[in-house]
Nucleic acid binder design. Sequence first.
DNA 1: CCAAGTGTATTGTTGTATTGATACACATGG
DNA 2: CCATGTGTATCAATACAACAATACACTTGG
Lengths: 127, 127
Amino acid sequence: MDASILTIQPTSPEPIYRQIVEQLRRLIAGGQLTPGEKLPSVREVAGFHAVNPMTVSRAYGLAESEGLLERQRGKGMVVATGQGISRSENERMQLLEPHLHETARQARELELPADEVVRRLQQLLGE
Amino acid sequence: MDASILTIQPTSPEPIYRQIVEQLRRLIAGGQLTPGEKLPSVREVAGFHAVNPMTVSRAYGLAESEGLLERQRGKGMVVATGQGISRSENERMQLLEPHLHETARQARELELPADEVVRRLQQLLGE
DNA sequence: CCAAGTGTATTGTTGTATTGATACACATGG
DNA sequence: CCATGTGTATCAATACAACAATACACTTGG
């Protein structure tokens, strides 16, 4: 598995290890990472993105304790069986809910017409 | 002015002072806070939301250096003249852009159909 | 078997961010 | 004039994130 599946923004205020965990959560729920699939090794990710191996390890560890990943001693990390298999669209949508609520809140504070906001999002999703 | 215009989530990883600044930015751009309008005092906000006065002061200070607020020594903070007056819808939309991009990214990672996401946002905006 | 590959525990250091407590300078209204 | 209201400078205390350098336990392929 290529280390390029993960996107890391070192400048973001969002800590790197959390960026990784949340991305894994979505990629697995969305089926782009399937149960049993092998993840890029800690050192591979660390080298590719120029971050500390322990930072990646921390992310993997959290993902494991969350049930997203399974550890295979001596081999590597693997997407947990039982994850992602039959995630209904509804379940996946719930992972987006908090973000959408925040979007709505900000739009209201900006007094932006709903139509405009919706249209812009639609445009972005079409790319 | 009531301290309740501001919403603060103490549990959020987003630091409090930044929550305040960004909210001010939107409330002013959206016209819910108008130029010359007096803001709730540092101690008022701090008391109401049970945070440290210096945290609020820091937010106000940043907002001032950003040109959002003006300081009237001994009196208080006021929405800067020249702010918000004729913020075009386009300008306001740009304040939402980064958030919308992130929404699109997450939706793609979740492999959610654009229609569903758009529909849900529309629903949230209608409330 | 053993070299090379996994993840990880450990310890320490660095830089930064966030919050807090206190004291201060200023302006206003009675 | 002075009590009371502004905002804030200053210093300290934490907490957090990331990095660095090791060392370890494990598995696999040659």
